[in-house]
Design a protein around this nucleic acid. Structure first.
Lengths: 177, 177
DNA sequence: GGGCCCTCCTTGAACTTTAAACAAATGCCC
DNA sequence: GGGCATTTGTTTAAAGTTCAAGGAGGGCCC
């Protein structure tokens, strides 16, 4: 993988700077990261698909709703909390609604708005499947890491997440931070 | 389908053990992890979709092929390296083949086998887009972490990945480890 | 009030992923 | 060699995601 000579020679168009390639060690880190994430995500997706009949991200949506006051959230707020696009959320909620786990409600204050509301049935699914899911997460992650590593992982991922947070996201919604 | 009660308590059916819930701190770690991963994955997917016309995982496949001897790998080996199912790989290679970036070749030793081969055109795409991608990875991850954090991240993710590696995977293919 | 831009959310089409089923070739045991 | 399980890779359909477009309401300026 050879890059063009960087030579900012006189009389020539500006060359792109030499790429900052990853060192061998950085590549190893990056590779481990991608592999770990891929395997973990697949693993949890399969676990939840099997035990709860939905993918991991859908489960996360139910969790957010369960934690919210009156078990409901505006679509946009839920999308921001879950770090997904509104479009994706729309489709997801449509599916969860078909399952009877979530219901939509109009927002009285804003006729454009919609609430996603966790149904009793949805809550029940969560109650029954949460133990299995926590256990899966523990076995895959927490049981394998020292307390220092857990702390470190939290800090690292928080830094990465912050750097990618759409700049304005939550600027006026500080409680989402 | 109830398992025979092992009745730890007299006269009653066995109770499931109390779930090992995550502590508040563990929850914070886990949440940061999921958010970071979601944001990062979306970010890189968008970057590569924009600049290279393919999702992140497809790009990763081309990279693996570029690194392999004669720029080719058996489908199963590539699937294992990339940590994806053979089915998914089949679809992905079909798409990359349509782009002219990969070509299939029969395996002379095993008539069931197929090689995925990186074409010159595919190599060229990689050459042109690699700098932008490395830069994206650097900005999102490495530029934000101290050397200690980078090292730590590598160790942690390696541990997680190892724990999820399908038990037999690579047992007879030690070079995949 | 009228005009204009922005936000909220949905939609449909194209694409990707998953899960299950399958054909063909191989390896193994006898 | 004959059977039989396994491996290899693909295929189909259903499910999920992305992208671009769009309807409808709100906010604001004049």
């Amino acid at each position: 993988m050879k890059a063009p000579a960087s030579a900012p020679t006189p009389g020539s168009v500006a060359e792109p700077p030499e790429p900052r390639w990853l060192t061998a060690e950085e590549q190893r880190v990056w590779r481990s990261f991608m592999e770990g994430v891929t395997l973990l995500d697949d693993h949890l997706d399969r676990q939840l698909q099997r035990d709860a009949g939905m993918p991991h991200i859908y489960y996360g949506l139910l969790v957010k709703l369960a934690e919210a006051p009156r078990r409901r959230l505006r679509m946009t707020e839920l999308a921001m909390l879950a770090k997904i696009t509104r479009s994706r959320l729309s489709h997801a909620i449509a599916r969860l609604e078909k399952n009877g786990w979530v219901r939509r409600e109009d927002c009285p204050d804003d006729k454009r708005g919609q609430f996603a509301v966790l149904t009793d049935e949805g809550y029940e699914v969560l109650r029954q499947t949460a133990p299995g899911h926590v256990e899966a997460v523990r076995q895959a992650v927490f049981d394998r890491l020292t307390p220092e590593q857990q702390k470190s992982l939290g800090e690292i991922m928080r830094i990465i997440a912050e750097g990618l947070q759409p700049a304005e996201a939550g600027a006026d919604l500080p409680w989402l931070r």
